[in-house]
Design a protein around this nucleic acid. Structure first.
Lengths: 146, 146
DNA sequence: TATATTTGCATAGCAAGCTATATTGTGAAA
DNA sequence: TTTCACAATATAGCTTGCTATGCAAATATA
């Protein structure tokens, strides 16, 4: 069959990409005043929960490539958000710690993120919002296999 | 209230970002052999539908910034996918045309994209898939305002 | 113990997004 | 007609993602 019916508006991949760019713009605008960005935010979330994680642990937790994490952490160190300390038992390993300033950013940053999430899901019922999260989890699971 | 309940797994922004990265990886793998990429694919879709569009028209249609489009088109020209021709009535304007090779990529590229969309939505009913698309459209609309 | 493999991180180089700014052509206004 | 504002595109420079590759330390194997 000739595939003349393919349309951007109905391609999940296209929609996801578009939506992701809009999210990035929205959150970027709000957390930039805090000195955060879309690349650093997930790392901060992981570290606000548990400091002292290794780069390898952060990589597994956040699902980015090791090289991406290494570069992100370098920028974060440059910008005074984290400090890398050598692991005492394994000289290959770096543990990652928040600076005092970075610890203080938690509540304001989460507040901005919550606002963006609320804005994005405006007009949805609680049920729809839960469905949306569940459907995304399904897609993530489907695309994560292997 | 202290916002201790914020979790990555339930933040729409976080999920969208994660999902988008997985989509990019999946589609990239499959269209790379065709000489396409995630940045060029949307432009190709727009041009397969209507060649000779101006850069400005593509920008509006695809929702990326003008500078992003200019750079993407330059790479596409370098890689033999498009040709930029001066507009006959307005010397500021460039119209964008597909090369013969690029025209031939349509069906195979759309086939790969369709496969990725199907993989991503595996295990969803038709209704769920329609819901997913509708919910994403809602989010896009919410975040597109102004 | 000596070598080989694996593991953890860093670096190089590219794509694709962004903002800010420069450049050039059009069209309107003085 | 000259100037001024606007429009279309290009360029500079950044972030964030990727793959590929290098290197040093730890561990396993011969």
């Amino acid at each position: 069959m000739t595939q003349t019916k393919f349309s951007r508006a109905h391609s999940e991949g296209y929609q996801v990409n578009h939506m992701a760019r809009l999210f990035i713009r929205a959150i970027q605008d709000r957390i930039k005043p805090l000195g955060l960005s879309t690349g650093t935010f997930p790392v901060m979330l992981a570290l606000w929960e548990k400091e002292g994680q290794t780069q390898r642990e952060l990589v597994r937790e956040l699902g980015v490539e090791q090289a991406t994490m290494a570069n992100t952490l370098s920028r974060m160190e440059r910008d005074g958000l984290v400090i890398r300390r050598a692991h005492e038992a394994d000289a290959r390993v770096q543990t990652v710690w928040l600076t005092e300033r970075a610890r203080g950013l938690r509540d304001p940053a989460i507040e901005e993120a919550t606002e963006v999430n609320d804005l994005a899901t405006q007009g949805m019922s609680d049920q729809e919002r839960a469905d949306f999260t569940a459907l995304m989890a399904k897609v993530v699971a489907n695309l994560s296999e292997t």
